[in-house]
Design a protein around this nucleic acid. Sequence first.
RNA 1: GUGGCCGUAGCUCAGCUUGGUAGAGCUCCAGUUUGUGGAACUGGCUGUCGCGGGUUCAAAUCCCGUCGGUCACCCCA
Length: 401
Amino acid sequence: MNALPGFRDFYPDTLALRRYIFGQWREVARRYGFREYDGPPLEPLDLFTQKSGDEIVGQLFNFVDKGDRAVALRPEMTPTLARMVGAHHRDYKKPIKWFAVPQLFRYEKQQRGRLREHFQFNADIIGESDVAADAELIALAIDTLRSFGLKQEDFVVRVSDRRAWQRYLALLGIPDDQQYTAIQAVDKMEREPLEKTREKLGAKADEIIAFANDKSPKDELKQMLASLGDLAAFCEVDFKIVRGLAYYTGIVWEIHDRKGELRAIAGGGRYDNLLKLVSGVDLPALGFGMGDVVLGELLKERGLLPKLDHGLDCYLVIADESLRAAALKLAHDLRDAGIAVEYALTPAKVGKQFQAAGNSGARYAVTIGPEEWNAGEVKLKDLAAGKEERVKVSELKEKIS
RNA sequence: GUGGCCGUAGCUCAGCUUGGUAGAGCUCCAGUUUGUGGAACUGGCUGUCGCGGGUUCAAAUCCCGUCGGUCACCCCA
């Protein structure tokens, strides 16, 4: 029986990669002063429909539980965060800077870079309306990617602003109820023929398309880029970015690989009205998400995956079975000292044991044989260098660690 | 959800056009005579040829369905 479609089994190598990615996410978040939180993977269906409407149900992994509750596996973290912050925001000083590494679910046909389940680095700032917060969050996203060895030539942050769009569309005389339609057409511009976009946009199509292609920063964006300092070099103004979600209210952005081969690596923006909608507490907020799937693909393509071994320090080679009991005692002494130790569980030839030692990825092989053991010593071999020396058993711990 | 392509050992794939009931490389396991690995050599294991049905004396090979994968659309975390 296989894993369900769109779900992954994590074998040790794959899990090692996942842990590496999570580790970088957490480390960079820590450096930026963000604290980790989490919530339930299963939520009331209403939590998601009240924000996005009933249409979203088609994309959700939802069902009715045994208590007759309509529930859904979380497709995103923001509603949970909004609820949590709304309930206890008085317990925390503002701005609240939190991050999470949730597993998210969506009932959709899978394809490259999009499964039915993925992990996402999610960072949010709540209670700060200044553009400095937008800059700080983008800086966090950029530094996160840099921590994996990705450089300016690998990715680009495309920044845009919903408010600039609203102001411009209002200036053109587009009524409020048609603005979202126009914004959605802009969102699809890149993937559709120009004629189709023009058709959707109607009378003011030329003006709107010109605005979308204008690369000069306006108002808040100008300030935001100034706050970013040197990191602004990673950014490009691109008003074609508007983000699909309806709840964004200000600066929005996406990170793409420069070659444009993959899906968006990360995306985020400001959503000042969402907390009030979900929790009744009126606080400005902004956040972003970065998925593990696309990021993993990009790192693989750029050859940036580190060698991930399982951190074994030494492999004990039992040269004579009469010393097995002594070897086991030594193994446990070393383990008590925090050293990772393996040995052959059943009798095997020395050659075999060395082969196993090599395959295990251990840094050292420690040979326990009658001759040395009687002198209170063992042989310590550096497996990478191929050099071997005799050391006193009493000094072994120090040599290895 | 719609459409194109694909589905053969743990992995990568050949065989399918012109039906005669399965192969290679890698991996894994064992050995190359008994206290030193990553190489080489030798040998070995593994498949209901995704699943179900049909055509046929005979199907991995042809036909239909189904499930899974993949790409595009839809949608976007």
